[in-house]
Design a protein around this nucleic acid. Structure first.
Lengths: 341, 341
DNA sequence: ATTGAAATCCAAAACGTTTTGGTTTAGAAT
DNA sequence: ATTCTAAACCAAAACGTTTTGGATTTCAAT
């Protein structure tokens, strides 16, 4: 049996009210009493019953994170790093983190609704925003606190952090164009993901800017896994006149593309340039190291979490909407042994 | 304001008791009343207040998972896959999942204690067991439900699932010995991790069985990251007479070792054989594909979670202790272009 | 008419906390 | 002696649910 306020009250010979107020340092409790209450609470190892507190206080000090994942063999470095960011920040600010996984769809919205109405959490963190994002619409409409990593096209009157994917992919495209590449393939992600939209846009604008032709046959879509990158790149490189550069919209597909090229006997960075986007830890120590765009996912997790907790506490945010400028990381996968541009 | 039992009671003209019992399908409520209560509950969109339920029922229907992670740049495929396993299984069985991150140490134990005593969770899942695991000692002593992925050396009277790492690493060692390798390097993980202990033992026993010499200079320890694998393998391969095979105790270090070898101009699978352990998704589509030992992490996550929930519900377990036999996955990183042994 | 049993219902207590709206006491000011 | 103030305290209500321990009604069997 755990120790309750009543137990302490009995020991001190005071009421439960006084004990509660003593522990919360109210000023209508005498210093002596406070000291006594505290020492006995300590002695008995008192820890408040959190459900009684939450029932009374009407808030949960918990934030929710529903990971939009598919299938069992799920392993995306993005999620573990992002999760570490929000987890640590939440702990630092005294919040719990409730995690669940649910593939996008009808059940996903039900999961949000259940957690909102129970109420299990005080706010949500949303990631991988989509065109017409039902989650954002639902939470906005419920006036339930949330912060997202990613924007939507219209309807942008909520708090978010996002990378400037257009700009980042522009950096990649410029880099390749400056190296003299004319025909560049693009490994896209499904169009309903906003990040895919912006990155693709950055790629297309980059080509236009350099007056390069856009060949629709060289733009193919995969599910963001290494396996997909491998398969798509294999197909592309087996064409009679394959492109000399492949831009993947994320690192995982780029890694798959590197393997595909190597399997076909090509030297990546010399015969074919391959680039990614995200700068996951794996990108630095693969062979050849991957040219990519750096995105500080852990820090973004921290930021998003801090913003959410401030919103929950009705504290003002310095900035409601933040767009981060990513930076280009040039490695061997695009420039082979050349030491400079 | 959310809908409570009282609201429903008022509408139906019955007591709160009856409404509660109707919704729980007790048989001292008339069918008519049940139907009416349910329809009105539905109409008002009633969702029980979970904190009131938990305060009353004394259990939380939540399981806890404290990820023992270091540092910010944390990205281990093990965790995302394992998390997906326990998350999905917990959801399937009606449990929430409370996640936090904490590096091993004193604060870690405090985190367990806080969650036990609040009480925030009904049980814990433990991973990456260590020699003298404080977490296990604490939870055993508190008689608090937990299931771990991984054993301890002594004190094994609790529920766990574990791989047979000795056997798995034996498969690897045999495989390499059969290929004719005599000097084999080993990339170890810190000795306090039990999995590292068993895998290392399997390696050493394997060498002994094949009457191969154990060269302590070829056994080096890293922090399980790709970066560590890269650095350790670089050092090893730069020796005047480098070994022709490198066994890494996990896939991530093996991937780093592959990059290191390639950086030095070696062809992995021909000039040097490299093996991993875990069969993470990345292992299949890297170049060359990685010879490794398959561990069904997602399924282990599900199993461990199901066992824990059964323990929480005081249902009997089919087996308290489960050791899984892993299987060898031979790919190009150990056999180059040879099509068979 | 009385008894018994079954069907249906419910007031009150309980879970452990915080908040509300006080009361009591001591001492100072009138 | 009365009034006022400040300090210290606390009973009861509230949060929303489930459980306990009956109460009432109905109807068949006697």
């Amino acid at each position: 049996m755990s120790v309750t306020l009543k137990d302490i009250a009995k020991r001190v010979g005071k009421s439960v009210t006084t004990v509660s107020r003593a522990l919360h340092d109210f000023d209508d409790v005498s210093p002596d009493t406070k000291a006594e209450v505290r020492s006995i609470a300590e002695e008995l190892g008192y820890i408040p019953n959190i459900h009684a507190q939450r029932l009374q206080s009407k808030h949960t000090d918990t934030i929710g994170f529903i990971m939009p994942t598919f299938g069992p063999r799920f392993s995306d470095p993005f999620f573990s790093e992002f999760l570490a960011g929000i987890g640590n920040q939440a702990a630092k600010m005294g919040f719990d983190l409730l995690v669940s996984t649910c593939p996008p769809g009808t059940k996903e919205l039900q999961a949000y609704e259940k957690n909102v109405r129970s109420p299990r959490v005080d706010g949500f963190i949303i990631v991988r925003t989509r065109q017409q994002d039902q989650r954002i619409k639902f939470l906005s409409q419920m006036k339930f606190p949330f912060v997202s990593f990613g924007r939507m096209l219209e309807h942008n009157d909520y708090a978010y952090v996002d990378e400037d994917g257009e700009y980042g992919m522009g950096l990649i495209t410029n880099h390749l164009a400056d190296l003299g590449h004319k025909r560049i393939a693009y490994l896209d992600a499904p169009g309903h993901f906003m990040f895919a939209h912006y990155r693709r846009q950055g790629f297309l604008d980059g080509l236009k800017e350099k007056s390069l032709e856009i060949d629709q046959d060289l733009i193919v879509t995969g599910d963001m896994t290494q396996r997909a990158g491998f398969q798509l790149a294999t197909e592309i490189l087996k064409q009679e006149s394959p492109p000399a550069a492949i831009v993947a919209c994320n690192d995982l597909m780029a890694l798959g593309a590197i393997s595909a090229a190597q399997q076909l006997g090509l030297t990546v960075g010399i015969d074919v340039a391959i680039t990614g986007f995200d700068n996951i830890p794996l990108a630095e120590h693969c062979h050849p190291p991957l040219t990519t765009v750096h995105q500080p996912i852990y820090q973004i997790g921290e930021m998003v979490c801090e913003m959410l907790i401030k919103k929950i506490r009705s504290e003002p945010l310095d900035q409601e909407q933040i767009i981060l400028q990513p930076s280009l990381v040039v490695r061997q996968s695009s420039i082979g042994n050349k030491k400079s541009l």
